[in-house]
Simulated scan of single mutants.
Amino acid sequence: MNAVFGVIFHFIGGFASGSFYVPYKKVKGWSWESMWILGGLFSWIIVPPIAAILTIPNFLEIIRDTNNSILGYTFLFGLLWGIGGLTYGLGVRYLGVSLGSSIILGLSMVFGSLMPSIYYFFNRTEGKHGIDYFFTTHSGICILIGLLVCVLGVFLCGKAGVSKEKHLSALSAESKSDYNFGLGIVVAIISGILSACFNFGIEAGKPMADVANTLWKTSNPNQGEFLYQNNVTYIVILWGGFVTNFLWCLYLLFKNRTFGDYTKSDVPKAKNFLLCAIAGTTWYLQFFFYGMGESRLGNGASSWILHMAFIILISNAWGVVLKEWKGVDRSTYRSIIGGIVTIIISICIVGFAKTLEN
Rank of each mutant, 00 (worst) to 15 (best):
I340M: 14
G327S: 11
G327Y: 04
I336F: 01
F310S: 11
S315W: 05
L322I: 10
I344N: 04
V350M: 13
D329P: 07
S315D: 10
T332Y: 05
M308T: 14
S346R: 01
K326C: 03
G327D: 08
G319A: 07
V350R: 09
F310R: 10
M308P: 01
V328T: 15
I340N: 02
T342G: 02
T332G: 11
D329N: 15
S331F: 08
I340Y: 01
S335I: 00
N316V: 12
G319C: 02
S315V: 13
I340H: 00
K323I: 06
V341D: 02
W325V: 01
S315R: 09
S331C: 08
G338I: 02
R330G: 05
I336P: 00
I311N: 06
M308L: 13
K326V: 13
A317M: 14
K326G: 09
K354Q: 14
V341T: 14
I345Y: 02
S331V: 12
I311E: 15
K354D: 15
K354L: 12
I349V: 13
R334Y: 12
I345W: 06
V320T: 10
I343W: 08
I314Y: 04
E324C: 02
L322R: 11
I337S: 00
W318V: 08
V320S: 03
E324P: 01
F352V: 12
I343A: 04
N316K: 05
N316F: 07
I312M: 13
M308G: 00
G327P: 10
E324I: 09
D329I: 08
S335L: 15
S331A: 13
N316H: 12
I344M: 12
W318R: 13
I314W: 02
V321G: 04
I344R: 00
I312A: 09
T332S: 14
R330K: 13
R334A: 12
R330C: 04
S335W: 06
K323R: 15
D329M: 09
I343Y: 03
W318Q: 07
I343S: 05
L313H: 03
V350C: 11
L313R: 00
E324R: 03
K326W: 03
V321W: 05
N316S: 14
F310G: 12
K354R: 14
I347M: 10
S346N: 07
V320H: 03
I340E: 01
A317T: 15
W325D: 04
I347H: 08
K354G: 04
A353K: 13
F310P: 09
I336Y: 01
K326I: 02
V350N: 07
I345Q: 04
I340C: 01
I344D: 05
A317E: 01
R330T: 14
I336H: 04
S346K: 05
T342C: 14
I349E: 12
R334T: 12
I340V: 13
G327A: 02
K326R: 11
T342R: 01
I340A: 03
I349P: 09
V321F: 14
S331R: 12
K323C: 07
V341W: 05
E324D: 11
G338S: 15
I347Q: 03
S346G: 15
F310H: 11
A309W: 11
G319Y: 00
I345G: 07
G327N: 10
I337Y: 01
I343Q: 02
R330S: 15
G327V: 07
Y333I: 11
F352G: 03
I345P: 06
G327K: 04
I314R: 00
